[in-house]
């Protein structure tokens, strides 16, 4: 995973930390949607928090991490308040569903920092961070279109919720960008974990003529790999590098660099260097989003396609290409590709 240097996210603020915010021992609580070993969204966040711990240790700060996993929104608020009361410096709510919990607890515990994933606003001691994954899924879509032999690509998505649909539609838009006239599909399974249904959804897309399937789910992605394997199709993973899970099918993984994002947010909250009231919605311009190629399959990608992937990455980073956040399924089909470059 590429997270060697601090990025634009922290640029300019990293050195501003005041000594008053420094404490020798800090406690951080991590409350993700799922399990910290899910190999996906929740685990990626946990890795980021652990990285923050290691980095802070170098600065002489001892940080301990505790976590409560797989909670309902109501339980998450109980947990968040309880951690705050137990003197935790920072409580990370790594799940969009916990937004109410973060804002409510934030009001009642002004001395604790709350970090909330994918929420509308940062207020006072509550900061939100949003990996804007439509950027990287757009590039994944481009790559998928170039790799498709059948002229069709698909997305299997968990829920029709903002940042998940941004990914799905970003992918479809990218596929059209790579090959105008390509067939793109998306299917919603209303679950993060139903791997069996994800497999059938992928199979349905393959039956309809797709041969590269993007996973916009969490652990259910296992079913997508199984479908790809039985049909000699390709899969594209999201959130974390999953090529070793299914080396023959996972072409590439669309990383949100969630570990980097979480590391930055947690370190910032401990150092007191987060900008007040700033929502950290970060796309590739902010260093969030990269493709981790599967070493076993990267040689099957033509050199000119790899080169264009690099160009696209650069163009999106510099803002030459601007990928829209489309939150309605199917919107990408009507989107005018010419307006991507209008800026």
């Amino acid at each position: 995973m590429t997270m060697t240097m601090p990025t634009a996210l922290l640029a300019g603020t990293a050195m501003l930390c005041t000594t008053t915010a420094w404490a020798k021992d800090v406690k951080v609580a991590f409350i993700p949607c799922g399990q910290i070993n899910d190999g996906s969204w929740s685990e990626a966040g946990y890795i980021g928090v652990k990285t923050a711990k290691d980095n802070l240790a170098k600065a002489g700060i001892t940080m301990t991490i505790d976590s409560s996993e797989s909670l309902s929104p109501s339980q998450a608020e109980v947990a968040a308040r309880d951690y705050a009361k137990r003197g935790y410096q920072t409580v990370v709510l790594h799940c969009g569903t916990f937004a109410d919990a973060a804002y409510n607890a934030g009001k009642d515990f002004p001395n604790t920092n709350f970090l909330i994933a994918v929420a509308p606003k940062s207020v006072k001691n509550v900061w939100t961070y949003t990996p804007a994954m439509q950027d990287i899924s757009f590039i994944a879509g481009y790559l998928a279109a170039k790799m498709s032999k059948t002229g069709g690509v698909g997305v299997v998505a968990s829920f029709n919720f903002s940042n998940i649909t941004w990914q799905a539609e970003g992918f479809r838009l990218g596929a059209r960008y790579g090959k105008p006239g390509i067939k793109t599909f998306s299917t919603y399974i209303n679950s993060f974990d139903d791997a069996g249904k994800a497999k059938e959804a992928a199979q349905a897309e393959i039956d309809a003529g797709a041969d590269v399937i993007y996973s916009a789910t969490d652990q259910a992605s296992r079913g997508i790999y199984a479908a790809a394997e039985t049909n000699d199709a390709l899969a594209i993973a999201s959130y974390s590098d999953q090529s070793q899970l299914s080396p023959k099918t996972v072409l590439t993984s669309a990383l949100a660099n969630i570990p980097l994002l979480l590391d930055t947010m947690v370190e910032g909250s401990v150092n007191g260097s987060l900008t007040p009231d700033k929502p950290y919605a970060v796309g590739m311009a902010g260093g969030i989003g990269a493709l981790a190629m599967n070493p076993a399959l990267v040689k099957t990608i033509p050199a000119d396609v790899l080169a264009t992937v690099q160009t696209l990455t650069a163009d999106i980073k510099t803002g030459k290409l601007k990928i829209p956040a489309l939150s309605e399924p199917g919107k990408s089909e009507q989107y005018d590709l010419a307006t991507l470059k209008a800026h």
Binding site: G34, Q35, D38, S70, S191, F192, D193, D194, A195, G196, K197, K199, Q219, A220, R222, G223, Y225, A226, E229, L245
Partner: peptide, 14 residues
Amino acid sequence: AQVGAYVDGMVAGR
């Protein structure tokens, strides 16, 4: 047989 992995919650109401 179907997924080739165990995932928490994979029974999903079946």
